[in-house]
């Protein structure tokens, strides 16, 4: 798959997991794994990019004597997921059209 497209898709995958519920690094990797296996070093820039883009905020929770960083989706992040769904619907339409080999109706 085209690398730019894959990058965008991974960002949205991670965002979708966090939209489901606030989560932290290790948990996010596990929750995304049914769909795609990403490494810890791949996840970090994705989270950073989503945060810089206003799609996520973070907060820390004390856990067994250490701090765990949680990520939470923002309204802008949800908007991003909406946008993905719309683009995908557009793509499905185009895909169906192509499969019909351009036959109208």
């Amino acid at each position: 798959m085209d690398t730019q497209m894959k990058k965008g898709l991974l960002d949205v995958c991670v965002l979708a997991v966090i939209a489901h519920s606030d989560s932290y690094g290790y948990q996010i990797i596990r929750d995304v794994s049914p769909c795609v296996k990403i490494s810890e070093s791949t996840l970090y820039p994705i989270l950073k990019r989503l945060q810089m883009g206003g799609c996520l905020t973070t907060y820390s929770v004390a856990h067994s004597g250490r701090l765990r960083k949680y990520y939470r989706i923002t309204p802008l992040g949800r908007e991003r997921l909406f946008a993905f769904r719309r683009e995908w619907e557009e793509m499905v339409r185009i895909h169906d059209f192509i499969l019909q080999e351009g036959k109208p109706g």
Partner: peptide, 16 residues
Amino acid sequence: RILAYYREMIEDKVEN
């Protein structure tokens, strides 16, 4: 931030 991220990742794996 990066070091905290990897520290947390290792600690979560150990916890699991």
